[in-house]
Simulated scan of single mutants.
Amino acid sequence: MSEHKVFSMAFSKIYALYVQKAMKKNRTEAEVVQIICWLTAYRPEEVKKQVSSGNDFASFFAAAPKINPNTSLIKGGVCGVRVDEIEDPLMRNIRYLDKLIDELAKGKAMVNILRN
């Protein structure tokens, strides 16, 4: 089975797209970082280091301290696929992040995005 193209994409490119999407909807880069930190347990300075490192998405998630145990609360679809039904762990984590950024761009409150 071939690897998904997104796995080898530079995290910095995807990060820039996340920030751009958020800012178009009057949200901030700090909120994007907060979401990434919630999902992966990276500290904000570690997220910035990952952005500048040139790592791909697979390496970014492989190096993550841990995935938040509350990801099971993330429901719904992104790109026509239900995130809670994705079997590949890496793809599921990528889609969780996509879903959280989508919720940010749609104006959802951070307390709800972070499943608090």
Rank of each mutant, 00 (worst) to 15 (best):
Thr71Arg: 03
Cys79Asn: 13
Arg82Asn: 06
Ala63Phe: 08
Arg43Asn: 00
Gly77Ala: 11
Arg92His: 07
Thr40Leu: 04
Phe60Ser: 06
Phe60Met: 04
Ala58Phe: 12
Asn55Lys: 11
Glu46Leu: 05
Trp38Lys: 04
Arg92Thr: 05
Glu46Phe: 05
Cys79Tyr: 07
Leu39Trp: 00
Gly80Ala: 11
Ser72Pro: 00
Ala64Thr: 06
Ser52Met: 12
Leu39Ser: 08
Pro65Trp: 11
Gly76Lys: 09
Glu45Ile: 02
Arg92Glu: 06
Asn70Asp: 14
Ser72Phe: 03
Thr71Glu: 05
Gln50Cys: 14
Ser72Gln: 04
Lys66Thr: 10
Ser72His: 08
Arg82Glu: 02
Glu87Pro: 00
Leu90Ser: 10
Ala64Lys: 10
Asn55Val: 09
Lys75Phe: 09
Leu90Phe: 15
Pro89Ser: 12
Ser53Asn: 15
Gly76Asn: 07
Arg82Ile: 00
Asp56Thr: 09
Glu46Trp: 09
Ala58Ser: 13
Lys48Arg: 12
Ser59Gly: 10
Asp84Leu: 02
Glu85Lys: 00
Gly80Val: 13
Arg43Cys: 03
Thr71Cys: 14
Val47Cys: 09
Gly77Asp: 03
Asn55Ala: 09
Ala58Val: 05
Pro89Cys: 11
Ala41Lys: 14
Asn93Cys: 07
Glu45Thr: 05
Gly54Met: 13
Val47Glu: 05
Ala41Val: 00
Phe60Pro: 05
Phe60Gly: 08
Pro65Leu: 05
Asn55Trp: 09
Phe57Ser: 01
Ser53His: 10
Asn70Gln: 07
Ser59His: 13
Asn70Ala: 07
Met91Ile: 08
Phe57Trp: 03
Pro89Leu: 14
Pro89Gly: 09
Gln50Thr: 07
Phe57Val: 08
Leu90Tyr: 15
Thr40Lys: 04
Lys48Thr: 04
Asp84Thr: 02
Leu90Trp: 15
Glu85Gln: 10
Gly80Ile: 06
Pro44Tyr: 03
Arg92Asp: 05
Ala64Gly: 07
Lys49Asn: 08
Lys49Leu: 13
Trp38Met: 01
Val83Asp: 03
Lys66Glu: 11
Asp84Gln: 12
Leu90His: 10
Arg43Trp: 01
Ala63Tyr: 14
Glu45Asn: 12
Leu39Asp: 00
Lys48Trp: 02
Val83Arg: 01
Lys49Tyr: 05
Lys49Gly: 04
Ser59Lys: 13
Ser72Ile: 02
Glu85Gly: 01
Phe61Glu: 11
Gly54Val: 14
Thr40Val: 03
Ser72Met: 01
Arg82Phe: 04
Gln50Asn: 15
Ala41Tyr: 12
Asn68Lys: 04
Val83Tyr: 04
Asp88Cys: 07
Thr40Pro: 06
Glu45Ser: 14
Phe61Leu: 14
Glu87Asn: 12
Ala41Gln: 10
Ala58His: 12
Cys79Ser: 10
Asp56Ser: 06
Ile86Ser: 11
Ser72Arg: 02
Ser59Ile: 11
Pro69Tyr: 01
Arg82His: 07
Arg43Leu: 08
Ser52Arg: 11
Ala62Lys: 15
Ala58Pro: 00
Gln50Ser: 14
Glu46Thr: 10
Ser72Gly: 03
Ser72Asp: 11
Lys48Leu: 10
Gly77Leu: 02
Ala58Met: 06
